[in-house]
Amino acid sequence: MYSIFSATKDLVIKIDNFIDLVSESVLHFERGLDLYLSGKTEEFNEKVHTITVLERKADDLRQNIQAQLYVQTLIPESRSDVYQLLEDMDDIIDFSKSLIVGFVVEKPCIPEVLHDRMKKLAETAVNSTDALVQSTRAYFYDVNTVKDHLHKVKFFENESDHIADKAKREIFEMDLDLAAKLHVKHFIVSIDTISDIAESIADHLAIAAMKRVV
């Protein structure tokens, strides 16, 4: 009995760690974008490395948690929801990593006038992910309060759309090649996508939470 208890405790810690990684990945992305825009290439490359390591760690952790849930036949009622939630949360890390790698590979030339707006967009992505992380923790610890955090995800996603629209409008009003415009627009849309992913996960989480309410 004690071994099952300690195995369960261990799994609780792993899930908490995984959720921390999701939150950190977006924070690292925000900081990486800041460094890219400031032209601090060396530090930026370090950040890219950090996110890459973090993404690998999160993948291993997720697979480990899912295997343990399955092998020990834990939470049979909520297992599929938790599986899905972990997969979806992992998408945020994967997307943040691929986006930052996109900056390394494509080296987009972002006009200085757009820097603040891009930073604001990344900050909003962090906020929406943060609200999602809080909702997820609530799902595990205090399911009745999930909805208290979920509405914030929606709020930040709207905010993100709004900022992205403004940024797109500004870029297309600039005197640049269409190719350059489209290139920058691609990165604006991509950063905005982080909030979209968070919102989509929040929708699933709302239903999963409803199922769990006693």
């Binding site: 009995m1 369960t8 799994l11 938790v82 595990f140 610890y141 399911v143 006693v214």
Partner: peptide
């Protein structure tokens, strides 16, 4: 009684699952 307690005591889903099995 359960609902009252579970609303006030924050137990992790997995620990709740463990206690429930026991």
């Amino acid at each position: 009684i359960f609902r009252f307690i579970l609303k006030r005591v924050k137990i992790h889903l997995l620990m709740l699952d463990f206690y429930n099995r026991v």
